[in-house]
């Protein structure tokens, strides 16, 4: 059974909500990223989003842009990210979702990617800049290999589109909390809740909310109406800070998650 679905089923059965951290693969380096992912899993991550670095991340704010640049300086490619996923798969069953812009995937070849990602134990792929027919084509190729294309919805998404996107989605739906780029914000907009309610009209798939979620209070708020909270820039910025201060980033992330995650039954993995 698909690891994403079975994890959300498990969460539901246990009456819990999900925590989906984002890690830029290869920042500060591939080995440290791997250890950070494992720490996140030990400390309650239900799904891991692995960022594939890209030179021109137009949907990202300064934090993830800089992180992507550091990974690229280390020469990290999609091939390396897939190898990292394969390595992680030998140590954990946590669902792995690649978070990428289209061009690195397109250059690699979508069919080749679907094969190699499935072999590496990746469960889903989110392509920031593919929508409509272009996304549907990718989804078809991925589905043949048992992979989900994770769809994004945004506060600007019209009712017609929500319906269409919901119909062709699998895995889970990623609701963008606000119009804007990725990055920590102090307040979660109320638009996110309205958006989640709107999409639930058309789907029974789990809905995760991301963009700008960086505090325990925000996670708690998201957990009231959505199935999972995605935390990206808050983790990325913590890694950056600790690397700069020459503190072990793995330890920092462990502590950060301790602060961030509201009390809940920790899963046994």
């Amino acid at each position: 059974m698909n690891r994403i679905i079975s994890n959300f089923d498990l969460l539901k059965a246990e009456g819990r909500k999900g925590f989906i951290p984002f890690v830029s693969a290869g920042d500060p380096n591939l080995e440290t990223s791997r250890q950070i992912v494992l720490t996140l899993v030990e400390n309650g991550a239900d799904i891991i989003e692995l960022g594939v670095p890209f030179s021109d991340p137009m949907a990202d704010g300064p934090t993830i842009q800089a992180s992507s640049q550091r990974a690229l300086k280390n020469g990290v490619t999609l091939k390396d990210v897939l190898a990292m996923a394969a390595g992680l798969r030998t140590e954990t069953d946590v669902p792995l979702v690649l978070f990428s812009y289209l061009n690195p995937l397109f250059r690699y070849g979508i069919e080749r990617l679907a094969d190699d990602a499935a072999d590496a134990g990746v469960d889903g792929i989110l392509v920031t800049d593919a929508v409509d027919e272009e996304a549907a084509e990718i989804a078809d190729v991925l589905r043949k290999n048992g992979l989900d294309l994770i769809s994004l919805i945004a506060p600007t998404t019209t009712e017609d589109r929500l319906k269409k996107i919901a119909e062709r989605s699998s895995g889970f739906i990623y609701a963008v909390s606000r119009a804007g780029v990725t990055g920590a914000q102090n307040e979660t907009s109320t638009t996110a809740e309205a958006l989640v309610e709107r999409v639930r009209e058309y789907t029974d798939l789990p809905v995760a909310v991301g963009f700008g979620i960086s505090t325990r209070e925000q996670i708690e708020a998201v957990w009231c109406y959505a199935d999972a909270a995605v935390v990206g820039s808050a983790i990325v910025v913590e890694i950056e800070k600790c690397v700069n201060a020459e503190i072990d980033p793995v330890k920092c992330v462990r502590e950060l998650v301790g602060w961030l995650l509201p009390q809940r039954q920790k899963p046994e993995r």
């Binding site: 920031t128 929508v131 409509d132 945004a154 998404t157 963008v176 119009a179």
Partner: peptide
Amino acid sequence: ERGYWGEYGGRFVPETLVAPLD
């Protein structure tokens, strides 16, 4: 109608920009 000349063109943007582009 999707903005393609042959295989070139199209609309490759984050979901947030689809409605304003429409």
